[in-house]
Design a protein around this nucleic acid. Structure first.
Lengths: 170, 170
DNA sequence: TTACTCATGTAACAAGTTACATGATTTA
DNA sequence: TAAATCATGTAACTTGTTACATGAGTAA
């Protein structure tokens, strides 16, 4: 059992991305985050490049040398990196914690709105969620099994939210 | 319509806490975060005090003068603060975004585990979730309506996760 | 040749964490 | 009176965001 340093959520997401899509450049990882439906991270260059450098320095990522004029560096996980990814993904406490849920964080305040205000708000929220679920459904057809699981999970959460809105206060 | 500056998730949570519990000290807000079930924020002094100072500076919070020897400052929302809280809590796009969901972030990787590894992991995850749901249920009895809504929402998410684990890959 | 995309990176800034410092009040 | 709790705050560090700089290859 190798002792591997604990990695952050963003670092875990970067390792996931590289592992499941195979060799990727930092730029491609960046794009994947920027294009993803979740607003978790913006895929800022100022976050990705330093994180990749950290992961390389700690021996979790390795890079092919840049070939030709273009500075492209293809990244892949080392054995240690794969172990770190596994430890991160399979930690039951981390995996089951609630995280930063914007919906949940706001739901308390909705309880002290006037019934009319709440009603109006809930219509808007339902519309926003349904639009999001629709977009996720469209996306589901054009993606791979790994991404698919994540999309399905997002849909499950959104549907649970809808259900909660419809039974609010019961 | 007053134009109020956009507030962060932590600032929104601080305003929520003070508004729904009535006048609170920064210390009490800190404790509430530290004691809360979610691992969203640690309630670090180094986060709360600067955030409260920002909110005061921008006129969203007001403080009673410290009376007696103890430096206690009771905080409450100004009219502008209440408007900002409302804007934050009732923004449909922000409220319905997925946020940083540690479960969802890891679920993709679970798809590329061997079936036996996945089976073992899922047993651990189910146990962790059930323990958490049990703790939330216990807590539900001893809390106020606003907190209750948040706890129920957490339980809904956890139950959706359980369901997902049981139907993984179908 | 102009514009777009691929690709990497940095600087200034914002915001959170840990760990520490300080002091008043309350309780055992 | 010693320990715990209430209460505020800062310093060093980590990490993420925005905005910018740089340059190579590709398509109009």
């Amino acid at each position: 059992m190798v002792q591997v340093r604990k990695i952050s959520e963003l670092e875990g997401a970067i390792l996931s991305e590289i592992e499941h899509r195979g060799q990727q450049t930092a730029f491609q990882v960046r794009k994947a985050f920027a294009d993803s439906f979740s607003l978790e991270w913006k895929g800022s260059a100022g976050a990705i490049y330093p994180a990749v450098r950290r992961l390389e320095k700690d021996g979790l990522l390795q890079a092919s040398a840049a070939q030709g004029g273009r500075a492209t560096r293809h990244l892949s996980l080392t054995a240690v990196g794969r172990q770190a990814l596994r430890d991160w993904a399979c930690d039951p406490v981390l995996a089951t914690s609630i995280g930063v849920d914007p919906f949940r964080l706001r739901a308390g305040i909705w309880a002290i709105l006037t019934p009319e205000d709440r009603k109006g708000l809930f219509l808007e929220l339902e519309a926003a969620i349904e639009a999001n679920v629709g977009a996720l459904e469209d996306y589901l057809g054009k993606t791979d099994p790994v991404e698919r699981v994540r999309i399905e999970m997002a849909m499950t959460v959104q549907k649970a939210r809808l259900e909660k809105l419809r039974t609010f206060g019961d």
